[in-house]
């Protein structure tokens, strides 16, 4: 060990690397842990459930282990009509979201309200639970908007997942949680970001997300490389299911210049009436249409209620 003083060198290396890890991981962890879940954040977390990427309960990313977002129009207990409200239904056996299992994740204020008034710690995976988002009379620190919190309606109102699902029409049930799994699995986020930019994007893509908008969500799937428009608020720009259906089946039907791939395979085998979808025939007719041999494109088959495309459309429409 002459002029090359390796012992000093390796210590200096450890020091430098350790210092950089502390600054980039340890220091910001305080700021990140202090984030307080906003209403948007609570909605996203409750909608997408425990995780939307690979998980043991859904190894092939089929959209399993996911909650349903249900528009409740009638009181599930009494059957009386009520002011419509969104409920997040976790059928028995569905993993609860991170904010329920690790309440600190919700942030100061929200955690306390959700635990004390919302009784979320009483929710059990085995028996399932129904959650609501409530507004309190406290204010968010940075923007003068009311602080929202989670309520476990199974504990506070006695709503069980089965009762809520039974009284809801199918059109009031959003499979947005499973849809997020589709979004991740199909790699939508390789071309569509979920992160409008503070500096430029407001007018076209809407406002950028705020700090509390992601608590408990995983993966956030921001995306990094845009080849199509940002989708964070796409549901506010376009909420037409018919348009979405045509666009997913073959984007060129509604947008001739689109470079989006066709997602017709998400329709599965059969359409809404249980009839087998003849993709080959559809494609050849579409080619004829494209060549000008016929004047109208073939009809897009209506998707089945339990098809993967339904989940994905529900997710996209729900991006408000």
């Amino acid at each position: 060990m002459n002029f090359r003083e390796y012992r000093i060198g390796s210590r200096a290396f450890g020091l430098a690397f350790g210092l950089s890890m502390s600054i980039t991981l340890f220091f910001p962890s305080f700021d990140l842990a202090a984030s307080i879940s906003s209403e948007v954040g609570l909605d996203k977390q409750l909608t997408s459930g425990w995780d939307s990427g690979w998980q043991l309960a859904d190894p092939l990313l089929n959209g399993l282990n996911k909650p349903l977002k249900v528009l409740v129009r009638k009181d599930p207990k009494s059957g009386e009509p009520m002011e419509p409200v969104y409920a997040y239904v976790y059928p028995a056996g569905t993993s609860l979201p991170n904010g329920v299992t690790h309440t600190a994740n919700l942030g100061k204020g929200v955690e306390e309200l959700s635990v004390k008034q919302g009784r979320i710690t009483e929710a059990r995976k085995e028996s399932g639970a129904v959650f609501l988002i409530k507004k309190s009379d406290q204010l968010l620190t940075f923007e003068d908007k009311p602080l929202s919190y989670m309520e476990n309606a199974t504990a506070t109102k006695g709503w069980t997942p089965d009762e809520v699902l039974k009284q809801a029409a199918d059109s009031d049930i959003l499979h947005a949680g499973s849809g997020k799994t589709m979004f991740v699995r199909e790699g939508c986020w390789w071309c569509h970001t979920l992160l409008p930019e503070q500096t430029q994007d407001w007018q076209v893509f809407g406002a950028p997300p705020m700090l509390g908008d992601f608590n408990g969500e995983s993966p956030t799937a921001f995306g990094s490389d845009r080849k199509g428009p940002d989708l964070l608020h796409v549901g506010s720009r376009n909420a037409s299911r018919e348009w979405m259906m045509l666009h997913f089946f073959n984007p060129r039907l509604v947008q001739p210049h689109s470079i989006m791939p066709r997602f017709d395979y998400l329709w599965g085998e059969v359409d809404a009436d249980g009839k087998k979808i003849d993709f080959k025939k559809w494609r050849s007719e579409y080619d004829e249409y494209r060549e000008g041999k016929i004047t109208t494109p073939p009809d897009v088959p209506m998707y089945a209620k339990d098809s993967e495309i339904r989940n994905l459309i529900d997710f996209v429409i729900n991006l408000k």
């Binding site: 700021d31 620190t141 940075f142 923007e143 503070q198 407001w202 007018q203 406002a207 950028p208 997300p209 705020m210 700090l211």
Partner: peptide, 19 residues
Amino acid sequence: VGPEVKIANFEGNYRPNGK
């Protein structure tokens, strides 16, 4: 931006009042 006035999502320095 255009027709909208919205709070920015920059998480800058703390003010004396904690915001």
